[in-house]
Nucleic acid binder design. Structure first.
Lengths: 133, 133
DNA sequence: GCCATCTGTATCACACAGTGATACAGTCAC
DNA sequence: GTGACTGTATCACTGTGTGATACAGATGGC
């Protein structure tokens, strides 16, 4: 599954887990219908509590990314249903987060041009990691 | 000061405040040596507790952006000292945050091209807001 | 010099979220 | 139907965000 957890990080374990699963889905490395490891299985692998995994799964279900079948397992949802009910991220909130990054870039001394270059570079790296379907 | 607080937001008041002050500094709207409102003054304007403002100021001092003079007031630090001790943001953590945004963009249905366009647009808007010094 | 009043600081209390322990309940293979 | 697997519910503990309140340094009018 290629998920790693940093116990010393200040970001909650549940969030670390959740954002990595979201990334795997976004990049197409977890495909629709695919089965995820059970909460105890994944928790064991990552050396965290299975309850934390369960909570991460449930929140991803709430976002519309996963389908949980009690007693049966957890699955990646199909894209169409994702798009409809799913993720309430608006472009606006994404823009806000982008601006924060631009601010930080300035404050560590990057110029506007350097920031632009940096961002474009990251964009390209991201696109390269994406699985073409 | 052009700072606004959303009491219903889930992001802590202290963080809302802090990120907005950082933005004002990064954009050059708060210049080196400039005096910020007192903790009680700003707290009054924003209708929050002055302790919250004090904590935000102190954290910005820890980041190297502000200088606090007990009894005298709070000032924006000069750029050189900022750059040296300051903000421990590395390009790496910025990259991680960028990737999260790219992920969210995919999950709300933006294509790679649309994401790129969106990001470039935000970059330009940000640059336009920046005060040329 | 002293007092009033401005600054920020320290400390405690409360609420809530993140985490883990443990008991519970649905599903499926045999 | 039983056993072993799924995820769920609930409680306790801890840390963090917020606010109340008492404190301490700085400054200006007298």
């Amino acid at each position: 599954m290629a998920i790693t957890i940093d116990l010393r990080s200040t970001t909650p374990l549940e969030d670390q887990l959740r954002s990595q699963i979201r990334e795997l889905i976004a990049l197409g490395k977890l495909v629709e219908g695919e089965c995820l490891p059970s909460v105890r299985q994944l928790a064991g692998d990552l050396a965290i509590h299975f309850n934390t995994v369960a909570r991460a799964y449930r929140r991803l279900q709430d976002e519309g990314l996963l389908a949980i079948g009690r007693g049966r397992g957890v699955f990646v949802k199909e894209l169409p249903s994702r798009r409809t009910q799913s993720v309430r991220q608006t472009r606006e909130t994404l823009g806000g987060r982008l601006r924060e990054i631009f601010v930080d870039a300035r404050l560590i001394g990057l110029t506007a041009a350097q920031t632009r270059e940096f961002v474009l570079d990251e964009l390209e790296q991201f696109a390269r990691k994406e699985k073409r379907s």
